[in-house]
């Protein structure tokens, strides 16, 4: 592959450090309870984004830097990323952000954008949705602030040339959508191939690693701008998630009583007057014709 990448290309992987999906979690007075020993982990999809970046590192020796917007607790997660093979970790944080974290995707993206454009990372791979607020908006906002294209639900990234990528995304009905896009780009990575485990030397090195922190002033972001972006979404309170709502069959109230009963008895399927044939020979022939009409045989 193009030699330029071996030296120049740096992949930025924005990650988050959130309560583990299977760990304990309790809510008290509308906030996460401090009493529970919450187990934290890198965002579920951040693992996949990092894996894609590390695949590029394995193949072409590009540099992979993880960057996170979050309080000091996030450093543990960044060390986890370092132990998996990331080259460097950077944390962006300002104490003024505490009050509206983690709901403000726009704020996170603004800070990431400031750091990424300063650093000049051409390729940004982030998780499709964070395991925190899970809005899936950080990647979109980031692309917007950086004026770069953005593709979501990405599951495979292949280089076409020095400045072009072939990107495979998950589409509806289980299909795959394939795009060609230029570099620089922001790609939101979805659930893809298996992720790797950390190595022991990796873990030891990660323990020692220095994680620099940048605040708003260092990033040259105006607090007023952050204030506007933060006003977009505020957390009122948290509550234990109610049972997943599921659709049930409820007949339209405008229908007559007898129609409603018929609908309930049929399981919601409209009665049809299809023709019914008897006998296996004729039946098979009829189905065969129907399948032919549908273009299946």
């Amino acid at each position: 592959m193009p030699g330029r990448w071996e030296h120049d290309l740096e992949i930025a992987v924005p990650v988050g450090f959130w309560p583990h999906r299977a760990g304990p979690l309790t809510i008290e007075n509308g906030c996460l309870s401090e009493k529970t020993e919450i187990v934290y982990d890198l965002g579920h999809l951040d693992h996949y984004a990092l894996e894609e970046a590390l695949k590029w590192k394995d193949r072409w020796g590009v540099k992979v830097t993880v960057v996170s917007v979050g309080p000091e607790t996030h450093e543990e997660g960044m060390r986890q990323a370092l132990s998996l093979g990331a080259d460097e970790a950077v944390r962006l944080w300002d104490e003024s952000l505490e009050s509206f974290f983690p709901s403000a995707a726009a704020v996170k993206a603004r800070m990431l954008a400031a750091w990424i454009s300063e650093r000049g990372c051409l390729l940004v791979l982030c998780g499709d949705k964070s395991s925190g607020s899970g809005s899936g908006m950080v990647g979109r906002y980031l692309a917007h602030f950086l004026a770069r294209p953005n593709l979501v639900s990405v599951i495979q990234i292949d280089p076409l040339s020095e400045s072009k990528l072939k990107v495979t995304c998950r589409g509806e009905k289980g299909s795959r959508l394939i795009y060609e896009c230029p570099i620089p780009v922001v790609l939101s990575v979805g659930r893809g191939s298996e992720t790797r485990y950390p190595t022991l030397p990796g873990r030891l090195a990660a323990r020692q690693a220095e994680i620099p922190v940048f605040n708003l002033a260092q990033l040259q972001v105006e607090p007023a701008e952050i204030g506007v972006l933060a006003s977009y979404a505020r957390t009122a309170r948290l509550a234990p998630a109610r049972l997943k709502p599921k659709k049930i069959l409820t007949p339209d109230s405008s229908m007559s009583a007898s129609d409603r009963m018929k609908m309930i008895l049929s399981g919601g399927v409209k009665k049809k007057k299809g023709n019914v044939a008897e006998g296996s020979q004729g039946g098979a022939a009829q189905i065969y014709d129907l399948l032919r009409q549908e273009g299946l045989v």
């Binding site: 999906r21 395991s131 979404a233 505020r234 309170r237 234990p240 109610r242």
Partner: peptide, 13 residues
Amino acid sequence: WYGERVSALLTSA
């Protein structure tokens, strides 16, 4: 939020 385990009520100012 948090892997669909917590329900968050949000407002916009």
